[in-house]
């Protein structure tokens, strides 16, 4: 090949800045959307409401209620853990289902999918960007819950060294560190749901159908998890490991369940990610 030909060859390896444009555009679309903003507001409002309710009733004294409530009223930092505990079974997965289930099906039903592919955005690239944006939304959702709960907790309750579930006490800073770990683990929990939602979203052109199916799955999984006769399948359910985060609040941290949980999440993500890719890369885009 001559030098002239080399000079004419297209510029090698486009800078990452350009590759990130679609991701940034996707983030803008996700976070500017009123519906998604409303979901974040809702997620942020729950800890505030729970905190106020606890503050108003705490003078009634403890009559053998859940351990968590004592801890929250004893130390505001625990309101974050409490809020995640309340939101993780239903509302947080629902919010994640809305965003991830809508990802491809929403573009398909709006007709914008055909233009993205004709531009061409590239099917694999578009799928990755959609996944990344939804996972980012999950992080924002968990961070919103943790942050509003922390602020509410600090305002309404005493704050100090954190007594862990195992009984020992660590400094406030270490306690906040543990809280961050819990947040990251919860993020991993719901990020699993993103892969599932993305896969479902490639199968249908109806965003409502995709969102509903995605939202129903973790609930179904939790129901199965509650049936003792089905204990054989429990370790394979992704929601089975969702509440293992309390192991992060012990000293020393118990890693068994956490590790198994993370491996289960990874397996689910790989399986459903592959399904999404296989389906989307061969899908006839007819709407």
């Amino acid at each position: 090949m001559s030098t002239a030909e080399i000079a004419l060859a297209p510029a090698p390896a486009r800078p990452a800045r350009i590759r990130l444009r679609l991701f940034r555009s996707e983030l803008g679309l996700t976070f500017q959307r009123r519906r998604n903003q409303a979901l974040l507001v809702l997620l942020g409002a729950v800890p505030v409401m729970v905190g106020i309710a606890l503050r108003l009733t705490s003078h009634q004294g403890n009559d053998g209620g859940p351990n968590l409530i004592d801890q929250v009223t004893g130390n505001g930092v625990f309101l974050s853990v409490g809020a995640l505990f309340f939101l993780l079974p239903l509302i947080l997965p629902l919010a994640v289902a809305v965003v991830s289930g809508d990802s491809i099906a929403g573009e398909a039903s709006a007709g914008t999918l055909r233009y993205l592919l004709a531009v061409p955005a590239g099917r694999t690239r578009l799928l990755m960007v959609k996944y990344a944006a939804s996972v980012t939304f999950c992080l924002a959702a968990v961070a919103t819950i943790a942050a509003t709960a922390l602020i509410t907790g600090v305002i309404l309750f005493p704050v100090g060294p954190v007594t862990l579930l195992s009984g020992s006490t660590v400094s406030l800073a270490a306690g906040l560190g543990r809280l961050a770990l819990v947040g990251l683990y919860v993020w991993a929990c719901v990020a699993t749901l993103v892969a599932i939602g993305l896969a479902i979203s490639t199968v249908t052109d109806s965003p409502i159908a995709a969102i509903t199916a995605t939202a129903v799955l973790p609930v179904t999984s939790e129901v199965i998890d509650a049936v003792p006769q089905l204990s054989g399948v429990h370790p394979y359910l992704f929601t089975h490991w969702w509440f293992s985060y309390d192991d992060l609040l012990r000293a020393p941290i118990l890693t068994d369940h956490i590790t198994q949980g993370l491996l289960t999440f990874l397996a689910y993500t790989l399986i459903f990610g592959s399904v999404a890719w296989a389906r989307f890369s061969t899908k006839d885009v007819t709407c």
Binding site: R17, L22, S25, L29, G111, R114, Y115, A121
Partner: peptide
């Protein structure tokens, strides 16, 4: 232009075009 235009209704015309352009990896930002 395939079977009529399709854009995000809540974005402005210009913002919609920005999104189309962002999707094209060969386009110069």
């Amino acid at each position: 232009l395939i079977e009529g235009p399709a854009f995000h209704p809540h974005l402005s015309g210009e913002a919609n075009l920005r999104r189309c352009d962002a999707a094209d990896r060969t386009a110069d930002a």
